[in-house]
Amino acid sequence: MAGSGKSVGATTWPVTLATVIVLIFLLLPTLIVIPVSFGSEKYLQFPPREWSIVWYKAFFADAEWLAAARLSIAVASLSTVLATLVAIPATLAFSRGRLVGQGVARSLILAPMILPHIVVAVGMYIAFSRWNLIGTLPGFVAAHAILTLPFLFLTLTAAISKLDPSLELAAASLGASRFSAFRHVTLPLLMPAIAGGMAFAFITSLDEATVSNFLSSSASKTLMKKMFEDIDFDVSPIVAAVSTLIIVGSLLLVAAAQLVRRLAVRAPRPAATLPAARTQAKAA
């Protein structure tokens, strides 16, 4: 391995240089808001002349910002739960069932990921205006559940395809019903994927700005809508403080999800050797 790396190493310094430059281009603008948020003056400075946390204090003292944050967290939690509850049975139908019109159903579930978000947003805005769902919790939750569905579905489908169906078969031959085989064998094995998928769905909902922008009302807006308005109106350093909180929060959640997944992979799994050997044989 090390040898193969070295043999091409001599000719790759331009690639390495390009990689370093591109990574700086990726990271720097993303993280610049963090030092800026700790400035003390009304306009943004880098590096700040004086470090302070006034903008964080201002955020936590502002009722409108707090309401937006609470709404976003509620929407992200509920939409993640809703999407998971419908995605699990759907995944089972796809990978353990015989489904008529599988291709159409799959395209429909993945469509929110591919179709332009502006079109989805405007379509929902017009429909939800008629149904009086603009600026309401059910409206936000339904919209975000649909937008996070493709991620959950793909994560779960990938995870279930790695499970060996013979485990459920074994449970069934020992007298378990189909439901109890699912409940006691399949579901526990899927738990890490479900937890990971839910963490990512939560962040996707929290960060979603296009649809939220259209579905918010002046009385009830998500954090992203509130940020969008503040940025458009007057770039106050509170937005930098909120951005920092969101970046740190999202990354902690992603790290936690990855950790859960790693731990689950390392933990000994029942009958792990036999299915693994069989998959390898199939691949060969």
Binding site: L26, L27, P29, T30, L31, I32, V33, V36, L44, F46, I203, L206, D207, A209, M224, M227, F228, I231, V235, V239, A240, S243, I246, I247, S250, L251, V254
Partner: peptide, 17 residues
Amino acid sequence: IPLWTSVLVRSYAWIVL
């Protein structure tokens, strides 16, 4: 890190710059 940082936050960062 950029992928899991909100698009809005990253667009805002360009305004800051």
